[in-house]
């Protein structure tokens, strides 16, 4: 790069590697699935409720691993609670630094964890997997406005969890990471597209949620578009910093290619079918609304498209984060 005002970095990489990569991945899927589930429940029809519950299941299960990964990554795993409780002698107490995304993120994880757990249990009860009378009575509290408020607030934290990891990288003095403001949005968009793909894949195991397949397909396309736009912003912000070559150099370009391959189904679908679901070039064989009831019960799906394409999208989500994390370290 020949630009005069290239950012100088004389820093050491923090050695955030595999644990952090998978944490970022799962945080994106957990937060993203919660957001999609909430949209289904608040704005979808009654037929979207099974997909909404599926989303809450995914959000909780993906989140379960997150604290474990984060704890294992610490040099002193048994001191994980120091993130919340400052043990400085004479200054002990709860600690939250709003200007440190890692500190904010820990608390957001705790809060989001509570919402994800509530929604998970609620979905279990509504699916009659839990039949305790007490649980049913508790869930009945969530039937009305309170339930809507809970999932809305939960979704806000879901959006935060899916995106703040990118901000955490940016709030540093590392090349690439600190040279752009796009990473938070980029991780959020890719977390959402990955979540839509994952839910689409899981519809195989939940036929009654089949009615939501079209919505997931279209959402995935729109999130892929958003992600592509943010990759463009990412590139544009790296040029003046002279960091493009670091982020996209060999061998990282290979990971970027995988990330782009993961965008292909969504962008391709958008180009060929816009916002319509035509059955051509879509991830899962779908039915139009008018024949939903007859198809949902019987039609076998093509394994190649219903497994391979969501798999590709998810691989892309992982590769994107790997490229961002590893290229500078």
């Amino acid at each position: 790069m020949l630009l005069a005002d290239e950012a100088q970095h004389f820093v050491r990489a923090p050695d955030w590697t595999w644990y952090i990569l998978f944490y970022f991945f799962l945080a994106g899927l957990s937060g993203g699935s919660y957001v999609i589930a909430t949209l289904f429940r608040l704005r979808g029809g009654r037929s979207d409720e099974p997909a909404a519950r599926l989303g809450y299941y995914v959000a909780f299960l993906a989140l379960l691993l997150c604290p474990i990964l984060l704890t294992l990554d610490l040099g002193k795993p048994l001191r994980f609670w120091h993130m919340m409780w400052n043990t400085t002698p004479g200054d002990a107490g709860l600690t939250l630094k709003y200007w440190s995304p890692m500190s904010v993120g820990v608390w957001a994880l705790v809060v989001f964890g509570a919402f994800a757990t509530v929604s998970f249990v609620e979905a279990l009860v509504r699916d009659q997997k839990i039949r305790l009378p007490l649980a049913r009575r508790a869930v009945r509290l969530l039937d009305g406005t309170l339930g809507k408020v809970v999932i809305t607030v939960g979704a806000v934290f879901g959006l935060f969890i899916a995106g703040y990891t990118g901000v955490l990288l940016a709030v540093s003095n590392q090349p690439v990471w600190s040279d752009t403001w796009a990473l938070g949005g980029l991780f959020l968009a890719s977390g959402l597209s990955g979540s839509a793909a994952l839910l689409l894949f899981l519809l195989r195991y939940r036929p009654e949620a089949e009615a939501s397949a079209d919505t997931l397909i279209i959402s995935e396309r729109l999130y892929a578009l958003l992600e592509l736009a943010l990759i463009v912003v990412f590139v544009l912000t790296l040029i003046p910093a002279g960091a493009l070559g670091i982020a996209f150099g060999f061998p990282w370009i290979l990971l970027w290619l995988v990330a782009f391959a993961g965008l292909a189904p969504g962008i391709g679908g958008l180009l060929t079918a816009r916002l319509a679901v035509t059955g051509e070039g879509v991830a899962v064989p779908v039915h139009s609304g008018s024949v939903a009831t007859s198809v949902a019960t019987s039609r076998p799906k093509s394994v190649a498209t219903s497994v391979a394409i969501p798999g590709l999208v998810l691989l892309g989500v992982l590769a994107l984060r790997a490229a961002v994390i590893f290229s500078i370290q």
Binding site: V35, L39, G166, A182, G185, L216, I218, L222, L226
Partner: peptide, 18 residues
């Protein structure tokens, strides 16, 4: 702010899809 803008667009996208 970048994440917030993305979040707004993403929710809009989800609503459009629905």
């Amino acid at each position: 702010l970048g994440a917030l803008g993305t979040a707004v667009l993403a929710v809009l996208g989800g609503l459009i899809a629905l």
